[in-house]
Amino acid sequence: MTLQILLLLVGLVLLIKGADWMVSGASSLAKKYHVSDLAIGLTIVAFGTSAPELVVNVYSSLQGHHDLVFGNVIGSNNINLFVILGLAGLITPMVVQSSTVWKEIPLSLFAAVLLIVLANDWLFPNAHILSRLDGLILLALFGSFLFYVYKQLKTDKQEAAPEQKQFKPLQIWFLILVGMAGLVIGGRLVVTNAVSMATALGVSEKIIGLTIIALGTSLPELATSVVAALKKNNDIAVGNIIGSNIFNIFLILGVSSLLSPIEYNPVFNTDMLLLCFGTSLLFIAMFTGKKKKLDRWEAGLLLLIYVGYTIYIISQEI
């Protein structure tokens, strides 16, 4: 147990440092090529921080741990939305571009609703399977999302900030790639040792997926968004969360179901409805204010909702 705790702490250090390097590299890349931080946050940073979920889900899918596949993605998305965005919003109010409110957040909501429809197979009530065809649909939508971001790269420009430290191209990519490596390795160490500890205590696979694994694989998003918030880089903080949630459903579940059809347990519908509710709440919070902003009290509300949700799902297991 001592070794597991030590390795978990090493993983946390790698996650934090990897996130710091990735934010620095991604932000420098955005400034160097006059690309918005939001576009970089939605692609490079989102993919890098979603890498642990991809690794865990591919392994779980091939091994037939279906509850872990869905629990990891659904749990990670809920943690991203309620916990990570909530913490980032407490550090500094999240002011974002209007495209995030009108395009990326609704797309994230669409992804969640589509997953409910595809996984439940309401036309075939006894199925409840995310099939290979469903996987192809999700991957096609992921390709469309990448094309949208590519268009953003051409239309959403910003001038380089002269006061920011400028890195050479090799330094930028070194920061990004080493940061990604730190995130993946750190996430792996955290998840592996946390799961071993939880399994020894007799926790169910569903709860492990929704909590321990989801939290472990979400630590890169947590570290990245908190560091970005501390650096007042709201577009990367929010773009990372929204982008990761879109990546998790379209790419990670798309790849997982393409490798092997995944049986869906309808008990996850409650967790999916919470994700839809939270995403809708975020849209309303951003839409109703004078500025496209998530205030501190709204961020605190997100955290309180997640605390209540966690108490509920654990009580269901007792």
Rank of each mutant, 00 (worst) to 15 (best):
N234Y: 11
S131I: 07
L215Q: 02
W102L: 14
L54T: 11
L258T: 03
A198I: 13
L62M: 13
L29P: 08
Y312C: 07
F283Y: 14
L275R: 07
W102S: 11
F277P: 05
T100Q: 01
I16P: 00
M180L: 15
Y312M: 12
G300A: 08
N248Q: 12
F247D: 04
A140G: 08
I262H: 05
P52C: 06
A181H: 07
I318N: 09
V35Q: 01
I213F: 06
D37S: 10
S61Y: 04
M286F: 12
H66G: 13
M94L: 15
L139W: 11
R188F: 14
P261A: 08
L123D: 14
Y312V: 02
L42R: 02
R296N: 00
S196A: 15
E205C: 02
E205I: 04
I5C: 13
S244Q: 10
D235T: 02
L141R: 08
E159D: 11
S108M: 15
H65E: 13
L3E: 13
S196K: 15
G11I: 01
I172E: 13
I185V: 15
W122M: 12
I212L: 14
Y33M: 03
E263M: 12
E53L: 01
V203I: 15
L230C: 09
N78D: 15
A111I: 06
L90Y: 06
L170P: 01
A30R: 03
T155V: 12
N80Q: 01
I318Q: 10
L175A: 08
D37A: 04
D20C: 10
P261N: 10
N80Y: 04
L253F: 06
G41Q: 02
